[in-house]
Amino acid sequence: MKILKPILIIAVGYLLLKVGIPFVGSKLHPGTWPVVPTSVLKMYMFFVVAGTLLFSTFSEDGYAGIVGPVADIYTNPKKGLLRFVSIMIVGSLGAYVAYQYVKPTFDAPVELRSIHPAPPSTVKMWGKSYSLQTLKNPLRADKANFAKNVEEGGIVFFQNCFFCHGDRMLGKGPFYQGFNPMPANFVDVGTIAQLTESFVFWRIGTGGPGLPSEATPWLSAMPIWHHLLSEEQIWKVILFLYDYTGHSPRVTAAQAH
């Protein structure tokens, strides 16, 4: 029964994605069960099935081994009952899938937000214009006062930002649970480690309402910090964030010059 092997491979693949990944993930982040989101899982499975079928049917033997039994069920006059049953099973499966799509649910609609949306070329804060393309953190060059600036940045952080982003910088401050999107996790390699300081400056300065629409500005609870902090304070916080997490900011060619 050559057909069993691909079925087995697909089943193992499914289990790995459904249980294996969350299991490993739960070891990395205790207390969570990081499932593969359904949207991704569907695509994964599509290609697992497609790939398995491909490498099982490249040879004539393999092809016959898989198509043969299926064709047999549909055409062998001796297998009338089996044919009937399998046709019913396939039909019921289809009906089940259709039902999943039309059944009434209270699942919230899926909303997508772009985590790193495109920044504008210039941004206005404190009545001034900043060109994000070339903007650099002016305090980074000040090596003599670096430690002092970092500490002052930390104080700004703990008096303003920490309530959401948390003292572990994991985006889990005392009030994080009430917010969606969750506050940014700065330790993660996917956030500030990917960004230039000018990008971070823009995100802090203009907050949630300053986001373009693909990043759902109506949901973000990030305050418009240039209403509450000074330019220098924001640059200090940025120094602190990179220093505390050990990440270094990205530098574009325009900024390097």
Partner: peptide, 28 residues
């Protein structure tokens, strides 16, 4: 694997973060 995963809010809370601890690595 996309950088931004589309997830339902239930999945989001199960994962506990906007970044998936494993798949997040595949997004970059």
């Amino acid at each position: 694997t996309p950088h931004t995963l589309i997830m339902t809010s239930k999945e989001l809370t199960q994962i506990g973060d906007a970044h998936h601890p494993l798949l997040g690595y595949f997004g970059v």
